[in-house]
Amino acid sequence: MVNQQYRASDMMTCAIANLLNDGETVFHGVSSHLPMIAMMLAKRLHAPNLVHLNIPGGVNPSSVTQASYSSAGADLFSGAESYFPLEEVFDLSMRGRLDVAFLSGIQFDLHGNINASVVGSYQKPKVRLPGGAGSAVLIPTAKKAIIWRTKHDKRTFVENVDFITTRGNLWKIVTPLCIFQYKAGKLHLDRIQPTSSLEEVKANTGFELSYDEIKYTNAPTEKELSLLKKIDPFDYRSIEF
């Protein structure tokens, strides 16, 4: 049963959870509350054997139970099944054993390039950003990189990024408006979110859309929304909105 009373954060979390498969080994980095909750939701719904890796190293942490919970904090050790440190995650990825890595950025272009370094000229930028950190290693080496971005506008999705921080095995980009898929050397419109439209996606994207057919993401179900309340009682999935 589909529930019409849901928010963009609920919709994106469910959409991301549905991209994950049972048995996959999946990693999320810092400031990654939304994909973290999506991974927990996938494990409860259809992917019980998904392996959840993270920055602190707690493998398969329990659900969010504290108001101080962090996507990169010691809370991820609470109830974790084992310990797998961050340096081993990079090694795992470079050996071709990391199925999915969740990462993000500031600018994305038609050709699948990701910018997390500067806005404007590199020598004299308007804004200097943190840079690639682990994404420069994980995006090229993980089997699939999933990007999430809670802002979808023409400054974010551009014809050419101002600086190429990283590129590689980009698979999907999930936003409040749509899901892009990288194939044949460029971003294609995969699915439109149920609260958006083709016209809205076009109006907020800085490059010409390419798509085979118009498809829509499934709206969150009553079961998904009910589980989200249990998994994420402090609503961490909405922090970025």
Rank of each mutant, 00 (worst) to 15 (best):
F27H: 11
N49F: 00
L170H: 02
Y182I: 04
K143S: 11
M1Y: 10
R237G: 02
G131H: 08
L20F: 05
P48N: 01
N204S: 09
D162E: 03
H33E: 06
T195L: 12
I179F: 08
L187G: 06
Y6G: 01
A74W: 04
D162K: 05
C178E: 13
K143R: 14
V2D: 05
S226Q: 12
G23V: 13
G120M: 01
V137L: 15
R167S: 14
K186P: 00
R128S: 11
L198D: 04
D91R: 13
A72L: 01
M94H: 05
E88A: 15
I16C: 09
N21K: 15
G168M: 09
E88P: 00
H111S: 13
D75P: 02
R97N: 15
V59E: 09
V2G: 00
S210K: 13
H152L: 11
I179R: 08
P125H: 03
G73N: 12
S197P: 09
P61Y: 04
P35S: 12
S135D: 14
P85S: 05
T221P: 02
V137K: 10
K144N: 15
L227D: 01
I173A: 08
I164A: 02
T166V: 14
T166I: 09
D235T: 01
D109A: 07
Q107E: 15
V119C: 09
I179G: 04
S9H: 11
V26D: 08
N21R: 14
M94C: 13
Q4C: 00
K202S: 11
A219L: 03
A133W: 06
P130F: 08
F84R: 03
N160M: 00
S70R: 15
G185T: 09
T65A: 11
L189E: 10
I231F: 08
I146V: 15
Q181L: 04
L20Q: 05
D153V: 07
V174E: 06
Q66K: 11
Q107G: 07
I214C: 07
E159W: 00
E81G: 01
L41K: 02
K215F: 03
H152S: 12
F102R: 07
A67M: 10
P194K: 06
L177T: 04
D212G: 12
F180L: 07
D190Q: 14
G131F: 09
S71T: 10
K202W: 01
G58C: 10
F241Q: 14
